[in-house]
Every structure is written in structure tokens, then in C-alpha cells.
Design a binder for these strands. Structure first.
Lengths: 215, 215
DNA sequence: AACCGTCTTGGTCGTTTGACCAACTAGCAG
DNA sequence: CTGCTAGTTGGTCAAACGACCAAGACGGTT
């Protein structure tokens, strides 16, 4: 028997919880299943956490941090705002598609917070972190632009976060990666149009604007 | 004691279920609570429905129909596509804000379907209905346009559905109606820009495009 | 009036859940 | 070696759940 410190036990259980929750869903994630997944006895759970909600709080924190990291890694601010939008959204998208169960879990957790008295702040905090991380990244990119923008940076990041949330939901429901990738391109184009800047790179088939695109 | 036909009992329970679920959330919605809300004894539930899942299927159907109706009522195709986008989105938005618990419930149900084996089709069906209803409405409006559009109608409606989903989630989390209404305006503008058409109406402060909008 | 299918009702079953606990043990400090 | 703290363990509890059922009541039909 290997003895594990309480903090390590917490990390171990949080990671196990994330695995179970993204695989099976929040509702089916019981403290027993989490302990099993971590290879720990059931009683160890309530030694590491006061209750299930305390674990869920830790899970939300861990997942939020990871999303922030993905966004930061995807963007090089020096390439300008238009490129930042394209790279940031595509980077997040790749991350979302790579583990769709995890994305589903995030929405389950957000709704759980919104539904549980005393946990509304967690959902707010989560999205505030998203917004501020995005604002930080895109703001840095905007400093490399000479032209004034048609939209404020906070409004732009709000738009981006909302659009990506909607897109991920569509992907979760339809599982149609091809269609969603096309939709992603439209979101990128829409965001760029909102800024009033030129598209970041020449797309394959010439300029994006002013071309009829019949169904 | 008033005797009620089995179909009426179903409607009664579905409506009660919608009330309970939007108020308390899917997890806390038990068959007992539904029966209580409907003023029916617990046993009546399994007389009207085989399963809890059968009821949930009926609930999804009812809610989906209502959303379609809201969209149709909000739009007058004869006013053109740009006006249809503005009216459709604002109409849906007003409906979403009016009963935010109901919107939360919809996401809970969508995720539930996605998580429950054998119910994935329900989530797909739900969003296919949204997409086709939106396509029908906006397509009708597009026939009044003379100019060719920069985007296909299916791509446009996908964009609109995704953007509204994301926006509603933001509202559910932040509860900041003022901010979300500003975001809604940006979604409308973005969608209009994607089509390549002029905005539907002169906004309060002059043309929307080409004006610096500093933070 | 007698009948019978539709609907109603309260109770009960087996299961699962989060929480809790008392007993136990490893390993460090003195 | 002794004593103490931090960590471990399996069992147990009350509560709540979905499902099910047997028995009864209603009301239209004959």
C-alpha cells in the first residue's frame, strides 16, 4: 500500500472525475465511480473532499485553466488581430473536437452551477476567466493594428466566446465535423468583418467578400 | 374525482414536467414531483407514459414546436432578408429572456439526449427542426432580395442558430441583459455583413460599418 | 340493470446514492 | 522504542428514486 498525501489524493481524484465525467456524463458520475477510476477506496473520497460539490468546484477550476492555456498557445499576437482571431478560434476548435466528451462535460458543469444554489458564482467565474483570457490575447494582437476598429475589444471577445459555444454545441449534436468546420470559417469571417480589418490570409478561392456563394 | 382521457393526461403531465424542469432543473425533476405539479397521483404517471424517457421525448417535441412558432411569428419575409435576420433574432431573444429557466431546460435536455444511449437522434432531430424552420423563414425572405448573397442560406442559418445558442448561454451565466443585448446587436450586424446586404434599418447612431468604436 | 374496458389510486419493491464512521495502519518525531 | 498525526479502509445508514401492481371506481354500451 502506497500512502499518498491529501493534496496528491485530491489531484488524483479530480483527474479521475474528469475522465469519468467526460466519458459517462455528470449524472452518472458518482463518488464511487470516481474512486474506482482513481483506484482508491470509496472512503478516501470524503477524506480528500468535504463533499461532492467541493470536488466539482475543483474540476471546474482545472478545466477552465486548460482552456485558457489552449487559447494562449494558439495565438501569436505579433501577427495582428485578424490572424489572432483565425488562429485562436481554430486552435480552440481543434481542442474541442479532440475531446468532445470533455466539452459536453463543461456544459453539464456550467448548467449544474447555474442550477445549484450557492454555485452560481462558479459559472460566472468560469466565463469571466474565458472572457478575460480572450481579451488579454486579442488585445495584445490589436496593439499591432494601425487602423481603428469598428468594434470594442470586449464586445469582440464576447462575440467570439458566444459563437464558439454555439458552434461546439452544434458539433456535439450533429457530429458533422465537415459542416461545423465550414461554420467555423464563417464565424472567423464574421468576426473579422466586425472589426473592419482585412482577412488574415488569402483563402483558397480568392477574396471572401463580394462573391456570390450560391447554395 | 374527474376522469381524464389518457391523451389529456399526457398533455397535462408534459406541461407539468416543463414547469418543474424549467424551475428546478432536469436532475431534480422526478416522476413524483411531476405528478404532484400536475395534481395527479404518482401511479398515474406510468399509466400515461411507459417510461420517464418517453415523457422527456414528448417534452422535447413540445418545446421544439414552440421555438419554431416564435421564429415564424417574429418574421415577415416580405421585408427582406436583413429585416428578417433582425426581427427573427430579436424575437427569439425576447422569448428566451422571458423564460430563462426554459432555455436552461432545453440545454439540459439536449445534453441528456446526447448522453443517453438510444436518444442521440432526439437531439439531432431537435436541431434539424430549428435549422429547417430557420431556413424556411429566411429563405422566404431572401427571395425578396435582388442582389446575390455572399453566403449560402444553409450556412447562414447554421451561423444564426449557433450564435443564438452561444448568446443564450452567456445570458444564463452572466444574467447581464444589457451586455447581452449589445452582443445580440453585434450578432445581427455580423450576420448581415456575412450576407453582404445593407443593414435593415438605420441604427440610432448612424451607419454601423466604418466607424471606430473605441472601448 | 349488468357488463366491461378505461382510468385511478396508494402502496411497495429493489436499487442506488451521498454521507458518515469506527477501527486500523504507516511513518515520522522525540 | 513510544506516541502521535496523517492517511486508509470497508461497512453502514437514511433518503430518494423509477418502476410496478393489485384493487377499485367510473361511465358508456348493451
Amino acid at each position: 500500500m502506497v500512502r499518498i498525501s491529501a493534496v496528491d489524493r485530491r489531484d488524483q481524484l479530480v483527474e479521475a472525475a474528469i475522465r469519468v465525467m467526460s466519458r459517462e456524463g455528470l449524472e452518472r458520475t458518482t463518488t464511487r465511480r470516481i474512486a474506482d477510476e482513481a483506484g482508491a477506496p470509496q472512503g478516501a473520497f470524503h477524506y480528500a473532499f468535504r463533499d461532492k460539490n467541493e470536488l466539482l468546484t475543483a474540476v471546474v477550476g482545472a478545466v477552465t485553466l486548460e482552456v485558457e492555456k489552449v487559447l494562449r498557445d494558439a495565438v501569436d499576437p505579433a501577427l495582428g488581430l485578424a490572424a489572432a482571431i483565425e488562429d485562436g478560434l481554430r486552435g480552440y476548435w481543434a481542442h474541442a473536437v479532440a475531446d468532445d466528451g470533455l466539452r459536453l462535460m463543461q456544459y453539464e458543469l456550467t448548467i449544474f452551477c447555474r442550477r445549484t444554489e450557492g454555485f452560481e458564482w462558479l459559472a460566472e467565474w468560469q466565463y469571466a476567466r474565458y472572457a478575460s483570457a480572450a481579451l488579454e490575447v486579442f488585445d495584445a494582437a490589436a496593439t499591432f493594428e494601425t487602423r481603428a476598429l469598428d468594434i470594442s475589444m470586449t464586445d469582440l471577445t464576447n462575440f467570439l466566446v458566444a459563437a464558439m459555444d454555439g458552434l461546439v454545441i452544434q458539433y456535439e449534436v450533429t457530429r458533422d465535423a465537415e459542416r461545423c468546420e465550414r461554420d467555423l470559417a464563417h464565424v472567423i469571417r464574421a468576426a473579422t468583418l466586425l472589426t473592419g480589418l482585412e482577412p488574415s490570409r488569402a483563402p483558397g478561392r480568392g477574396p471572401l467578400v463580394g462573391r456570390p456563394n450560391p447554395d
